[in-house]
Computed example of a mutant assay.
Amino acid sequence: MNRTICVVTGSRSEYGLLLPLMKRILEDNDLCLQIIATGMHLSNEFGLTYREIENDGFFINEKIETLLAADTPTGIIKSMGLGLIGFADAFNRLKPDILVVLGDRYEIMVAVQAAMIYSIPIAHIHGGEITEGAIDDSIRHAISKMSHLHFVSTSAYRDRVIQLGEQPERVFNVGAIGVDNIIELELLDRQKFEESIQFTLGEQNFLITYHPVTLSDSNSDMLITELLAALDCFPEARIVFTKPNSDADGRIISQKIDEYVQRNTERAISFTSLGQLRYLSALQHMDVIIGNSSSGIIEVPLFNKPTVNIGSRQTGRIKGPSVIDCGESRKDIAEAIVQAISGSFREGNTKANLSLYGNGNTSARIKDVLKCVNVKGIVRKKFHDIHPNRGEE
């Protein structure tokens, strides 16, 4: 009897990372792939990206609506409640052998909560990481504690998951799954990329990926205004924006980006979703990537490109020398961009460092574990105490 692996995806970026794993599960005759699409995938505002999943040849078993019109904390909490009800019904129908989730978003946490009550074994990808500037940090660790198999991207993150009390034999250091796409996808050359986005790049090009800083003392309106003001210091640069996720205040940032593009139609363009192929293709044609996304830390360095990492959202994540951390003021951001595009920095600090997040083949390694692991009794977790005798001293 085939083992059923259910993958939950709620956002475009997460799906792009999961894509190679989903393909490998689908191609394995001993495994049966189930897919649940939720969150931003089902929202017209965020591009109805569930269509990308279907266009890639996958069948979506369940679509679970979660997003409400508001992106306030109240609206997000209500979305989580709506999602929990939907996942309860979905798992009752699908009854998967293993649930696979990635990352740290709130719709993923409610999926895991429902699966935990159903005693479905949960496999979590990208646990053990630290992002002190966002509530994602707490969500990620909570998901780890509800999960039974852990696929982490570095040895330091493996140690941290074990420190949370997880059994070492169930924590696998497989590298970052995003590396697989960089190695395996045939990326678009400059001409094809420009045709795909209907926008002509210039001599200097910036890619902006900026998300709400959910634990910041400053408001999103002010923070995005500072970033956009910094970009005005580089009037010759062509700018490609990818819009934020559905976190609190995400719509404020999107609105400010739209207004900026309207004022700068000749040199700026924005996208709700570039999709994995166009996004990774964009990285190879940009001079600098600016924002506060994890991709600037994990994937971008593999293209020998610098990242300007703004503010505290990614504080605590392991970074290579091509990542420039800066403050949130327009002055700090502009100075960091100047440093990033300087010839001396690019020559000295943008050498690819695959050793930080692995050398690829991550999805194949995850698939092999999912296929072969003994799940009998796995949901009965035992806390692994790294100092078992300390209380007796």
Rank of each mutant, 00 (worst) to 15 (best):
residue 365 R to Y: 02
residue 299 E to I: 01
residue 277 L to H: 05
residue 285 H to C: 08
residue 284 Q to W: 01
residue 333 I to K: 06
residue 303 F to N: 11
residue 360 G to K: 04
residue 322 S to C: 07
residue 353 N to R: 14
residue 305 K to R: 15
residue 357 Y to H: 03
residue 359 N to G: 06
residue 356 L to M: 13
residue 277 L to M: 13
residue 349 N to F: 15
residue 321 P to W: 12
residue 293 S to M: 06
residue 313 R to Y: 05
residue 296 G to Y: 05
residue 306 P to W: 08
residue 300 V to R: 04
residue 320 G to P: 00
residue 312 S to N: 11
residue 321 P to K: 15
residue 342 S to N: 14
residue 277 L to W: 06
residue 342 S to G: 10
residue 339 Q to V: 03
residue 313 R to F: 02
residue 350 T to R: 13
residue 352 A to G: 00
residue 355 S to I: 00
residue 351 K to R: 13
residue 298 I to W: 01
residue 339 Q to A: 11
residue 361 N to E: 15
residue 310 I to Y: 05
residue 310 I to F: 07
residue 320 G to N: 12
residue 343 G to V: 09
residue 294 S to V: 10
residue 359 N to V: 02
residue 319 K to W: 03
residue 286 M to C: 10
residue 284 Q to G: 03
residue 305 K to L: 10
residue 357 Y to L: 03
residue 334 A to V: 03
residue 358 G to Q: 06
residue 285 H to D: 12
residue 324 I to V: 04
residue 318 I to Q: 15
residue 307 T to P: 00
residue 337 I to Y: 01
residue 353 N to L: 12
residue 281 S to W: 04
residue 330 R to W: 02
residue 362 T to F: 02
residue 327 G to H: 02
residue 287 D to C: 05
residue 361 N to A: 10
residue 361 N to V: 06
residue 289 I to M: 15
residue 356 L to A: 04
residue 291 G to C: 05
residue 306 P to E: 14
residue 366 I to N: 01
residue 281 S to I: 03
residue 335 E to L: 12
residue 361 N to F: 12
residue 307 T to I: 05
residue 356 L to E: 04
residue 359 N to I: 03
residue 342 S to C: 10
residue 297 I to A: 07
residue 309 N to A: 06
residue 278 R to K: 15
residue 354 L to Q: 12
residue 288 V to M: 13
residue 298 I to L: 09
residue 275 G to E: 11
residue 336 A to M: 07
residue 314 Q to G: 06
residue 298 I to N: 06
residue 355 S to R: 11
residue 289 I to P: 00
residue 348 G to Q: 14
residue 346 R to E: 00
residue 333 I to P: 01
residue 304 N to A: 15
residue 279 Y to P: 00
residue 295 S to I: 14
residue 351 K to D: 10
residue 295 S to G: 10
residue 306 P to L: 14
residue 279 Y to N: 07
residue 283 L to R: 01
residue 344 S to R: 12
residue 287 D to L: 08
residue 355 S to N: 14
residue 288 V to N: 09
residue 353 N to A: 11
residue 310 I to G: 07
residue 330 R to H: 13
residue 344 S to T: 13
residue 323 V to A: 11
residue 327 G to P: 02
residue 314 Q to V: 09
residue 353 N to G: 05
residue 340 A to T: 01
residue 303 F to A: 10
residue 366 I to H: 02
residue 338 V to L: 13
residue 323 V to F: 10
residue 329 S to F: 01
residue 294 S to L: 02
residue 319 K to I: 02
residue 346 R to Q: 13
residue 312 S to Y: 09
residue 365 R to C: 04
residue 290 I to W: 02
residue 293 S to T: 12
residue 365 R to S: 11
residue 281 S to M: 11
residue 359 N to M: 07
residue 287 D to P: 03
residue 277 L to F: 06
residue 335 E to P: 00
residue 325 D to Y: 01
residue 340 A to M: 07
residue 297 I to G: 04
residue 289 I to Y: 11
residue 363 S to K: 01
residue 319 K to V: 05
residue 291 G to L: 08
residue 313 R to A: 07
residue 313 R to D: 08
residue 318 I to W: 09
residue 293 S to Q: 03
residue 314 Q to A: 09
residue 333 I to H: 04
residue 357 Y to N: 05
residue 306 P to D: 15
residue 357 Y to V: 02
residue 315 T to S: 12
residue 344 S to H: 12
residue 284 Q to I: 05
residue 332 D to C: 06
residue 283 L to M: 14
residue 311 G to T: 08
residue 320 G to I: 00
residue 348 G to E: 12
residue 344 S to I: 11
residue 278 R to W: 07
residue 300 V to F: 01
residue 338 V to N: 14
residue 334 A to R: 06
residue 322 S to Y: 01
residue 334 A to E: 13
